[in-house]
Design a protein around this nucleic acid. Structure first.
Lengths: 226, 226
DNA sequence: ACCTGAACACCGTTCAAGT
DNA sequence: ACCTGAACACCGTTCAAGT
């Protein structure tokens, strides 16, 4: 009997992994709106219907792409750190992933039941437990952290939707924030005193620092309650 | 000269207010996906192009609808309460609005630069100020509260997308949570110990209580930091 | 000024037909 | 088993034409 010969139909045969990879390339380089089955099929040199053999629908595709990105964050085990620091590290990992792939933010906040969120929940929850939060408070504490993270995730995704693709994002971001700040500065002082004050710090603020500050606020709340 | 006679072209003349009202009716009764310009035009007995005379595009329409709902929350001034309680009341007002109009949740978290969010920011920020949070920490504290609220907003909107319209939402919700809990309970105990534990409390948990607990956690953090 | 509704340029998804 | 690509049933938006 002849030995089984590897008969790869072609080197670039379609697979869910290859489809997800191509989808991520489109999402990263051209933004959420650019991901269509037609564009994806063209990039993969196949018919649009072929994709449905490997992927249930667009939701499935986006969930798989999000999962692929978040898996890189939840995979690295952090050892020898205090629970607070593990939580901070995990959260910052998610933050950086969203910063690199803004569409992930929208996807996470739009679909909280996907695997990526489940894994974040597990990792963060176990640290909340390690922190000594009483059992009946662990649910609320963990989901509060998750909601905060997903809330900012959605906002960064919204921010990315504003900026043109293929361009220097940070420069456009700064210009955009300055426009918003200028608009806020012109609001009625008696009606919007606080937002007017925010306008003065808005353009210079650091997203990452703001994010950590929020995490620390919730962590401080957890410590004071237990 | 003849006195000016009110010559309303017809009682049901189109206006942005009427369009927004009809849009909210569709969104509430049939869900986000059911709001199309064709459906809206049919309900208003007009052509789909006519709507564009009063509304810039679909984004503008959704922002106006969201604004209309949130205006009802940020309008009522709360007096004689401690800042913590005002924040709790405001946040719960937003929560209840989202509970009544789940599509508002998605809209708020998807578009953080709209007027509705600005007004929430002003009301919450002024209370953070009244709480005695030092000025340089007010920005981070207020946006942390906002992110938490918007995060949960997005999640409730996602939840509503799962349930069929026109039906007893709370019954379907319970059934859905039980399905999720059952799936979580079957996860690998060594890999997902925390989520398996969450599964036992998931179906019985109270969204509103969970929401308040998160707000209180952040408030506690603000007190311990100042 | 405001409205009509056909037309345009797209979508996601399906499915008979191929290999 | 896997792929092709035309066809279907939609979208948001535009715009010549009407009143």
């Amino acid at each position: 009997m002849a030995t089984k010969i590897r008969t790869e139909r072609r080197t670039d045969a379609l697979s869910k992994a290859r489809i997800v990879e191509a989808a991520i390339e489109i999402l990263d380089s051209e933004g959420e709106d650019a991901l269509t089955f037609r564009a994806l099929a063209a990039r993969l040199s196949t018919g649009s219907g072929a994709i449905y053999w490997h992927v249930a629908d667009k939701n499935d595709l986006l969930a798989a792409a999000t999962d692929h990105v978040i898996a890189g964050v939840t995979a690295d085990a952090v050892r020898g750190l205090r629970p607070q620091e593990v939580i901070r590290t995990l959260a910052l990992g998610v933050f950086d992933a969203i910063h690199a792939h803004p569409w992930v933010g929208g996807q996470l906040s739009r679909n909280p039941w996907q695997d990526a969120v489940l894994r974040m929940l597990e990792r963060i929850g176990s640290q909340v437990q390690a922190l000594g939060v009483p059992e009946r408070a662990q649910f609320n504490a963990t989901t509060a952290l998750m909601s905060f993270i997903l809330g900012l995730a959605g906002q960064y995704a919204a921010g990315a939707r504003v900026f043109p693709r293929h361009t220097d994002r940070s420069a456009f971001r700064k210009a955009f924030l300055e426009t918003v700040a200028a608009k806020w500065a012109q609001l009625d002082p008696t009606e919007h005193p606080f937002v007017r004050q925010l306008a003065t710090v808005l353009p210079e603020h650091d997203d990452r620092e703001q994010f950590v500050a929020g995490i620390d606020l919730i962590l401080a709340g957890m410590e004071s309650v237990q």
